[in-house]
């Protein structure tokens, strides 16, 4: 069974591990700087009123990411 999904498909209030970041250079840099590297625990907290972006909890900080970018972040179920 494939445990990998893209981050935008992650269920709210469930924890995942980051598997791979497939974003462009620039965004990837920012994502890494926020500590979102491989095997980091990430959890979707809530979505904005228009369903996009979504707020995630990473290393004690809440970070909002657009769904189109979250599509390019692969996560693994715990």
């Amino acid at each position: 069974m494939n445990n990998n999904i893209s981050l935008d498909k992650a269920n709210l209030n469930e924890k995942y591990y980051i598997e791979k970041v497939l974003l462009d250079e620039h965004t990837k840099k920012r994502i890494y700087d926020l500590g979102m590297i491989e095997n980091t625990v990430i959890e979707a907290l809530y979505r904005s009123p228009f369903n996009d972006p979504t707020a995630y909890l990473v290393r004690g900080t809440i970070i909002a990411i657009r769904n189109e970018d979250a599509k390019k972040i692969i996560v693994r179920r715990m």
Partner: peptide
């Protein structure tokens, strides 16, 4: 549009 990564501080 470029990426949007925004911190929501406490």
């Amino acid at each position: 549009p470029s990426s949007f990564v925004l911190e929501l501080p406490p």
